[in-house]
Simulated scan of single mutants.
Amino acid sequence: MSDNASFPHGPRWFAQPGTARTWRCASAPRQVRDFHAALTGYSPTPLTELPSLATELRIGRVFVKDESCRLGLPAFKALGASWAVHRALAERAANGERRGRVTLVTATDGNHGRAVARMAHLLGQGAHVFVPRGVHRQAVAAIAAERAEVTEVPGNYDDAVRLAAEAAAGPDAVLVQDTAWPGYERIPGWIVEGYSTLCAEIDEQLAAAGVAEGPDLVSIPVGVGSLAQAVVTHYRSRPSGHAPALLSVEPDAAACVLRSLVLGRPVTVETGETTMAGLNCGTPSSIAWPYLRGGLDAAVAVRDADSARAAGDLAALGVASGPCGAASLAGLRAALSGPDAGERRTALGLGPSSVAVLLSTEGTAANPRTVTDE
């Protein structure tokens, strides 16, 4: 740990002791990519190179994975929701459970709930989405526009998850939650598998751009850690070869993963208000935690102002990114600036020829590439 600056939940930066790039796990199923490729409207999202950011950060090349339009929705979440719903409904059919309409239930800070609602509508199922306080009214309206029943919860994200789990207890309901806890881990695991398509696309796109061995760093916005788990799985399941540094980025108002890494065990933090609503989560997913602890090189927390600046800079460069998506740039900037920048650069293994990939996980309401009700 190299930064003693404090915020309500502890230090803003944490680096692992150098073992993350040698940590190994099993890979995601190969059939996930084939499933997504067969969906109507599927195409790889752009990987955009931004040379001016490489100059600013004093590294070789910077690419942004632009998830502002994924399967007709303005975020990457459709990848996980589609695969998990497919697997869950197929399992019900295989088990001979009662056929007919079921209700897909979830809690969300915005994009995951909308993705589940969209899948439910496309498959002729119902959807019930629980939304915690602080989610923008436009995001709530977008979920309702997918023909979902929406219940607004006066509490935080963890409260919404608890109420969604209670509502899904009946035989005609299925909880499709992107966070896991003991006793509820299979469907969240399928959601994580769904995100592997994003990583496979990055490999192909970097190769086409002349980066055959892959990135030297990936910066990942983190809520409960499911996307980060998918990224760790992708890069730490290779038996040998180049292993990039993996950096998690959270709001300083909800840095549950950073705090857990500092303490060496998963903990719940009391969340505050943040414009990065989709990352406003107080508890790491139980299935994500072993991957985060083993495979992340470092974690950083950023302020809303940092994310807003990053979103504005990305927009000026032609990438429409919401506050959560822009956190990846804000986090890398925070890591590579300030009095400890040299130490952090060394911890991440970055030099003047390094290649970084920033995951911009969502678009904006003003983005013309998103659907009209976002």
Results as ranks from 00 to 15, higher is better:
Ala180Met: 03
Ala180Asp: 11
Gly183Thr: 03
Gly183Val: 06
Gly183Ile: 06
Arg186Thr: 14
Arg186Trp: 08
Arg186Asn: 02
Arg186Met: 00
Ile187Pro: 03
Ile187Tyr: 04
Gly189Arg: 09
Trp190Cys: 02
Trp190Ala: 05
Ile191Glu: 00
Ile191Leu: 07
Ile191Pro: 04
Val192Cys: 13
Glu193Tyr: 12
Gly194Pro: 06
Gly194Asp: 08
Gly194Asn: 08
Tyr195Phe: 15
Ser196Tyr: 09
Ser196Leu: 12
Ser196Asn: 13
Ser196Glu: 14
Thr197Gly: 09
Thr197Arg: 10
Thr197Phe: 05
Ala200Pro: 09
Glu201Gln: 15
Asp203Leu: 14
Glu204Asn: 13
Gln205Val: 08
Gln205Arg: 11
Gln205Cys: 08
Gln205Thr: 06
Leu206Phe: 06
Ala209Ile: 11
Ala209Phe: 12
Val211Ala: 10
Val211Asn: 06
Ala212Phe: 11
Ala212Lys: 13
Ala212His: 15
Ala212Thr: 14
Glu213Met: 08
Glu213Leu: 13
Glu213Trp: 06
Gly214Val: 04
Gly214Glu: 04
Pro215Asn: 01
Pro215Trp: 03
Asp216Trp: 01
Asp216Val: 02
Asp216Leu: 02
Leu217Phe: 01
Leu217Gly: 01
Leu217Trp: 00
Val218Met: 02
Ser219Pro: 03
Ile220Phe: 07
Ile220Arg: 05
Ile220Leu: 05
Pro221Glu: 01
Pro221Asp: 04
Gly223Thr: 09
Val224Phe: 04
Val224Glu: 07
Gly225Pro: 12
Ser226Glu: 13
Leu227Ala: 13
Leu227Tyr: 10
Ala228Gln: 09
Ala228Asp: 10
